[in-house]
Amino acid sequence: MSGPDQSNSAVSIEHLTVSYQTKPVLVDISLEVPRGTVVGILGPNGAGKSTIIKSIMGFVPRDFGSVRIFNEPVDDACGLVAYVPQRGQIDWNFPVTVRDVVMMGRYGHRRWYQSMRALDRAKASEALESVRMSEFMDRQIGQLSGGQQQRVFMARALAQESEILLLDEPFAGVDAATERAIAGLLAQAKEQNKTVIVVHHDLETAAEFFDAVVLLNRRLYAYGPPREVLDQGLLAEVYGGKLRNLSWRQEEAT
């Protein structure tokens, strides 16, 4: 094994190649995410960001390569990762309350014939408390602000008690206050030594949220500390010609 310290590895991807029909979506991706880090996955549309998330959950057929969660093959490691979906994937009119959603985080802990126990309810309340959403327990989820909704799903992930959290575009389309709230949640998860993997779209904010950044466009272009990865030359290569606007904004900001 060539990776750095195996015992400390939360997610370990080796030579992962995934395709839809004949079109490759991910080509020969290898990376190690150490326990307790917050990693951002960046790349243009269609770069395979969601596919890599799905691979870590173990339900994408691989053409080649392996994904290991705490050194277990991902196919045996069901339930070790907690998933926070993209806002757009949720039907906000669905008749469930905040409490119902967070309790879903406990479903994986009980067999189908077992009912939820006091322990599950306690864990759910605790998770809601930790994101300061207890007072909204009985609200239908559509009647919350965007930031509160994001916190509810974060609470669900915490109630799952998984060591790895996967967040799909949590910062997409949120206002500045919500952005701060989510960043706070990431920091909080890191304090608890959770490993957090975030699909992210905004290059400008990446440096302040993540310990490490993955730059992806079907191939793995770079993986490392944000300052090194978010190098203008490399970004231009990954994003093609679409980067002019960004550099203009950065010049103006300085």
Partner: peptide
């Protein structure tokens, strides 16, 4: 009644449902 939880979560968030092995 028996599969209430499963039917609900699969309807509400199929990706999460699959990720916990349902």
């Amino acid at each position: 009644i028996i599969f209430y939880r499963h039917l609900t979560i699969v309807s509400f968030d199929p990706t999460m449902a699959a990720s916990i092995g349902l």
